[in-house]
Structure formats: C-alpha cells, structure tokens
Design a protein around this nucleic acid. Structure first.
Lengths: 147, 147
DNA sequence: TATTGTTATACTCTATAACTATA
DNA sequence: TATAGTTATAGAGTATAACAATA
C-alpha cells in the first residue's frame, strides 16, 4: 500500500470518528445533521427564505420544507411572513433556539481545544496548511469542467 | 478564533468535500454508503452472516436485512445457506459484484495518489502522523468510561 | 410566465417490537 | 431458552412531479 493510500485511509477513519462524535452531540441537543445545516445558515445570515436555504444546502425546496417543519416542531425556529413577498417565508430563530445553538457552539469550541490540546503549535500549523492544500486540490478535482 | 478552532473547521470542510466526492463515486457504481460498508466487510472477511454484519456495522439486524436486500436486487451479492446453521445465511459476492467492487477499489487507489500527488513525502508523513495522533485522542475522548 | 412553497408519491437508512424457524 | 432473520410499523432525509398562491 502506498503512503498516499495509507494517508487517505487514516483521513477516512478520523472522519468517521468525528462524524459519529458530532452526530451524538447534535442528538443530545435535539438536532440532526441536516437540521444543523439549516441552523448554521441562520447563524451566518440571519432570517432567510426557504428558497435561499435550498440553494445554500444544495437540496430541493421540498426537502427544506421537511427540515424546517422539524425545526419548528422542536422549537428552534418559526416561519415569519416576508415583509415584501407574500409567497415567501423567513425562517427565523426563536430566542430559545438561538440560545440552544449558542450553547452548542461553545461546546464545539471547547471540543476543538481539547482535541488538539497536545499538538504543538508548529505541528498544528503544518497540519492546517496541508488540510488547506487538500481542500483546494479536491475542489479542483471535483469540478474539472467549470470553465 | 483559536488555531484549534480553525483547524477543526478546515478538517470538517475537507471531510464534507471527501464525503460528497465519494458518495458520487459510489452512486456511479450503483452503491450507497451503507451498502458499501457491507461490501467492505465481505472484501475483508469473505462470506459472512447477517448477524456478523450487524455487529460489525453497529446497526440492527433489521437494517442489515434491508441493506442485503438492496445488494441482492442490484446483483452484488446472494444469500447462501450456512453449512451448519440452518437459521443463518451467508452473504456472498456474486462474481460480477466482486469484479465491480475491485474496479472501484482501483479507482479509489488512483484517487488517493492524485489527491496527494503534490504533497512532498516529508509533509505527507507528518500529516499522517498527526492524523494518527488525533484518531487515538478522539477514541480516548469518545469512550472515557470503558474501563 | 416565473417563482415560492406545499401536497402527493417513492426510495433509502435507521429504530423497536413481535414473530418464525432453528439451535 | 436463546439466536438468526423477517414482517410490521415508524421517523428522518432525499428526490420528482403536480399544484396553489403570488410576483
């Protein structure tokens, strides 16, 4: 097995562990991964239309209807009327929803610091740099016909 | 934002890109991620019972029934009688299934080499080493009460 | 006419619980 | 009595297609 194959295997393994861990954390706070993506958009951009969510997440409008239904049922968000377009709704945090998400982000921050606690600064910088390189490389490989 | 938070964010981002890419590759070959995990077990261990798959994948027996149903319907595997236990079935590759999976693994290998092509040996070694450290660390954090 | 969101329908992955056949 | 696998039922995420209300 090449060093490249070994590295990709290790990366996959770490990915699976992180995904499991994060899934568990989200579930404890009453979120699924897909609903968390919606919440993250709200955190970044404030109230948004479902159309905007559909584009941002790369899923169908129908799918967004379902995700928002779930977030409404669990008290994270409400659907508010759009001020100028009566077709659209603005998906908006409830105060409680925003507080719950802020708490989760604090946990996430603490987790990052614990996970990398024993990694020296120089090693962490090198690691991050390699990750950046791979991200760029993968984006280029995944979209070869975009020009 | 701390360097630790930044690193975790980069790692997440790369993870999402890799997951998307791999999902697309699997779909082209007629597999889903979950079915691929079953296939991977067969690759590693040869014919296995559904019970063994249930344990290995950490999902319910009912779930395995569904995944194997899908793999049978798409021609990857068959259910063969267990030689000594008439309750059990042995999930077994079809010749065609094994050939298709071997082709996918070759693609995966080529992908690894392309992805890491521009990374110098020393950087790759350091990267893999950090990944290893994080894997160990995460396993320890995720299972703190296992003794 | 085009867009926003919903209802209708279907497939995949996941779970629990009840059940059959076998051990 | 315990185990291997299935049927029954349910919920989440995803998709297409048809539709209503509005732009």
């Amino acid at each position: 097995m090449s060093a490249q194959e070994a590295a990709l295997g290790r990366l996959w393994d770490l990915t699976l562990l992180l995904a499991d861990d994060s899934e568990r954390g989200l579930a404890e706070h009453g979120l699924t991964r897909s609903r968390a993506q919606v919440v993250w958009q709200l955190r970044q951009h404030g109230p948004v239309t479902q159309q905007a969510l559909s584009t941002a997440l790369g899923v169908t409008a129908r799918n967004i209807t379902g995700l928002v239904d779930g977030l409404v049922a669990t008290g994270f968000v409400t659907r508010e009327p759009h001020p100028t377009d009566r077709r659209a709704t603005l998906v908006t945090f409830t105060p409680q929803g925003e507080a719950r998400v802020a708490a989760m982000e604090a946990s996430q921050k603490a987790f990052a610091e614990t996970l990398f606690a024993e990694i020296p600064d120089a090693e962490l910088a090198a690691f991050t740099s390699t990750l950046d390189h791979l991200r760029t490389r993968l984006r280029a490989l995944a979209a070869p016909n975009q020009g």
